[in-house]
Computed example of a mutant assay.
Amino acid sequence: MSKAGGLPGKAPEWRRWQQGLFGSLGNTVLTVLTLALFLWLLKPAVDWLFLDAVWSGGADKCMAETAGACWTFIRTKARFILFGFFPPVVQWRPALVLVLFAVLLTASAMPRFWSAKLIPFWVATLALSWFLMAGVLTPPLVSTNQWGGLPITLGVSIAGLAFAFPVALVLALARQSKMGLVRILAVGFIEVLRGIPMIAVLYIAMLIVPMAVPGGVLLDKLLRAQIGVTLFFSAYLAEVIRAGLQIVPPGQTEAAAALGLGYWHANRLIVLPQALRAVIPAIVNLSIGILLNTSLLAVIGIFDLLNTAKTAATDPAWLGFYTESYISVALIYFAIGFGGSRYSLWLERRLAASRLH
């Protein structure tokens, strides 16, 4: 082992950084020029973000020529950005829903909790979140038209993943089926959904679905958007699961058949556990993609986190502070996405270590 605790024959981390940055004259020149450009851009950014920023007062103070970022706008509009038009007197409900989502995601991220018991936990958490937001458990009732902000972004993402998973599982198995008609239908569904943009799916859910249901039946706008998001990502998730199924050696299925296990028992007990374990990092990455793509809900008038940030800057009393508003929600998106990517890398290392043992 090396002094830095690395593998034998492998240079320490700091040595590889040194070689990459200053290992030659060309690398040294590029490093110095990059640092100089970074410092040149950093000073005005720091001035605007922190040194000249307005941390208190009103909009008139932010309008001064020497003023930087107006963070007092974010402080004033924080609740609207997070919860949208949800009535302020009961905004503890969406706040509690965020806590429930955090507990759900934390428990689901821990490998020791991975079992069939997570399924009713997901169902109960999503149902409880919906009842809390709607006011079924604690009146007054709140229409989904007033829902918005971070609970919508996380709720649509989590529910989309939860409902897309069983659909994707069926599609992945159907695409590998020996039954020609079943395979053709699965391939057609997957390729069509993967071949059109998500915005088109959302517009179809908004405009076409109401005309397709029987007369007098009204589907909530948020529910229609949720169905569109679920179907769209089920096609992508199906391909991820199919990649995992192809990793499992054919000998596993043959051994299961030799033991007398049928198709469904072999898949449930032998094939799927190995396949899903192999593609968990890819599923995590796709989950981050679902979260980021929920920003497209703004184009159909749903007040997700991005749309509430945009609307907050249209208040006549605080008109025009779009930069601060977008920066604040970008930091929220980045924190969730970066945390998810770090978790994916940690999980990949953990699964690799468990296979070695």
Rank of each mutant, 00 (worst) to 15 (best):
F22H: 01
A127W: 07
A243G: 11
A186H: 00
A174I: 01
A11L: 15
G339D: 07
I290W: 02
Q19T: 14
V123L: 13
Y343R: 07
I199G: 08
Y203C: 05
L33W: 04
L305T: 03
Q176I: 10
Y322S: 03
L185Y: 10
D220Q: 02
A134Q: 12
V182I: 15
Y333P: 10
A78H: 13
E239N: 04
A186I: 06
L345C: 11
A64P: 06
M110Y: 10
A186T: 08
E65V: 14
V299E: 09
G68W: 07
P250A: 09
F232V: 06
V54S: 01
W92K: 01
A162F: 15
L261A: 11
A200Y: 05
S56H: 09
W48G: 10
L161H: 00
A282R: 09
Y322I: 10
W147G: 05
A124F: 14
V240N: 01
S287I: 06
V192H: 00
F334R: 07
L49C: 06
V229Y: 14
G340H: 00
A257R: 15
S157I: 01
P139A: 05
G57Y: 09
L291Q: 00
W114K: 07
D52A: 11
P44V: 09
L193A: 05
I247M: 11
F189I: 08
N307V: 13
E65N: 13
F113R: 02
I332S: 05
K221T: 13
V240P: 04
L181F: 14
S328A: 15
T323I: 15
T125Q: 03
A116M: 12
W264T: 14
D304Y: 01
G68A: 10
A212P: 08
L7N: 12
L296G: 00
L33G: 00
A4V: 04
L25E: 11
G262A: 05
V32T: 09
S295W: 04
Q226R: 02
V170W: 10
L35P: 01
P111T: 08
Y203R: 02
I247D: 04
R349G: 14
G215R: 13
N145L: 12
I74T: 12
G320F: 02
L169R: 10
T66A: 15
M63S: 15
V54N: 03
I227R: 00
W318V: 03
G9M: 01
L21Q: 08
P140D: 05
A225M: 10
G337N: 03
A278R: 06
V271N: 00
L41F: 14
A45G: 15
L272S: 11
W55C: 02
L306T: 15
R79W: 14
L356C: 06
R224M: 09
R93F: 01
N145G: 15
S325E: 00
V240Q: 01
G289H: 06
G262S: 04
L218T: 14
A352W: 03
V329F: 10
I241V: 12
S143G: 03
M211R: 15
L345S: 14
L51Q: 13
M1D: 02
F121K: 04
P316G: 01
